[in-house]
Every structure is written in structure tokens, then in C-alpha cells.
Amino acid sequence: MPSILLNQKRNRNMPLSSRHLLGMRDVPKEDIQLILDTATTFREILERPIKKVPTLQGKTVVNLFYESSTRTRISFELAEKRLSADSINFAISGSSVSKGETLKDTVKNIEAMKVDMIVVRHAAAGVPLMLTKLSESNIINAGDGIHEHPTQALLDMYSIREKLGKIEGLKICMVGDVAHSRVALSNIYGLKTMGAKVSVCGPSTMIPKYLEELGVKVILNIDEAIKENDVLNVLRIQLERKAREYFPSIREYAKYFGIDQARLEKNGKDILILHPGPINRGVELSSDVADGISQIILRQVTNGVAVRMAVLYLLGTLN
């Protein structure tokens, strides 16, 4: 599949096929495997008393987060510091952006300070792609609007592979507000590339109208979703955003789409449940389920640092 990514140089020394990670859509299977295998190595480093390697020493990475985020930003920051890179956080509030500076000017200014890599999160889709045209740095998408969040999908796939030994052939379902979830879309792309059978489940107001064209099955009933799948990736209902308008009430959502222990037992399955965090307890997952799977969810977080280290390392050595 031809890539829409710019600044792509096919170079024998390049482990990955692009110098950026803008999304999962154009990442070939070999690249995903390389990232996951590399992450395994870094995962081991995270168990050592000294969690640092000199791999990216001397490199400067800017975390350009236009949307507030704690977990993803800290995860990236730790990944960068553990690789010995110089990590800088650009906080939007109190910055030139609150004075009205455009994205273009902000990026050009950062670029002028001679940085090597930019990790960007923004509320508008397409911003990471814009950055590839404004900057010479490697660009890593940490979430652009309702478009993609590739490192989340990669860490989800890593976690699945770690627990179940494979991805290919597994039946995996994204549950929740699929239409407004960049985690869902990136997972759909990545999982399909790796050969999983992907489905989605949620209220029909939250399922994109043409999603089936991507080869994804739509399930409107949570019991069915549990019965039919090996893995559920349960998305956060974004109550602070427009998500509220797409279903009548939290009570209704929790009752008909929430996953609690009773529901799991009723459908009698040993199923792997993932969640990108933070969990809305009592909404998409009941407290008892959240506690019951807390090990996996926390493992996702640890894996996240390893996967981000892998991505930074592989892209950072392409410069």
C-alpha cells in the first residue's frame, strides 16, 4: 500500500519504512513486528535497578502537547529520559500559544532551537502530518483529534501478544465510543495488519456509519461481543467531551454497555480485557471488573513506556 507520508526516504540502513510515526494506517507488518520485538528488549530494561541506556544520548526530544494529558506525556517523558535523551515539555497554558501564536510559528520556533524529534498531541486531526512539512525532526503522533494514537495501539498489541502469545487469528473487539476514539481507529488498522479479526461494539450512535467498509464487524450488543471475542479493548467514554450527546445517560450506558462481573460470568468466558485508562469506574467497567483486571491494565502502562522507547529508538537512529 503506497504511503501518504512525506519525507519518506527508503534507505537500506533504516529499520522502519518511515522516519515518522503519524498513524497505524500505513505501518507495514514488518515494522509493527520490529517495534514490538524491540519493545521486548526495552521491557526487560524496565525491570533493572538502573533503568537507563545511552541509546539516544545527545538527542533532544520535544513533547509538544496541545491537549492536556498526564499519562501519555509522562510515559513519553520517561521513555525519552531512560534512553538518555534530553526531554523537553512544551506546556500550552502560559506559553506563546495562549498569546495567540499559530501552530506554524510555534513549530518553526522550536525547530530553530535545533531539536531532533517532536512528540505531538493535538485536538485537530492532521496536525502531525502538518508538522512533517514544517519541521526536519522525526514526528511522533501522540494523538491527533479523533484520528490516530499509534503508540497506544502498539502498546495494546504488545500487551495482547504478551498475554496470549500471538495477535493473528484472534478475535478482538473495540468497545465504546468508536466514532470519536483515536485509540479505536489505530487499533483497528494495526490489528488488521497483524491478521486479527476485528469487531466493534457500542451504541449505534457511536459507531461510524461506513466502518464496515474497513472489514470490521459491528456488534450492537455487549453480551454478544463478550461471547464472540477473545479480547475486548474497552474505550473510555469521554464524558468531558461531546460523548454525552450520543447516549441518553450514563445510567443507560452503564446498564446496557458497561461490563461488570455478572455480565462476564453470564457469558462464561475467559476473556482478556484491556483499557487505555483512565477508567470511568461504574460506566464502561464496574469497579469489581476494574479491580479484577487491574494487573493487566497496569501492565499496559508499563508496556507503554517500553513501546515508546522502542519507537523513539528506531526512529531516532534514522536521523
Binding site: R25, A125, G126, D144, G145, I146, H147, E148, A179, R182, L185, P208, K209, Y210, L211, E213, L214
Partner: peptide, 15 residues
């Protein structure tokens, strides 16, 4: 426009 493209591109759709 709301189509498969609005989903692929992650852009809010106008049906």
C-alpha cells in the same frame, strides 16, 4: 463530508 473518508481521516463529519 460524512463518508468512509471522514472515519479514515478522523475529521468530524457533515452528513
Amino acid at each position: 463530508n460524512e463518508s468512509i473518508n471522514s472515519t479514515l481521516l478522523g475529521l468530524p463529519p457533515i452528513p
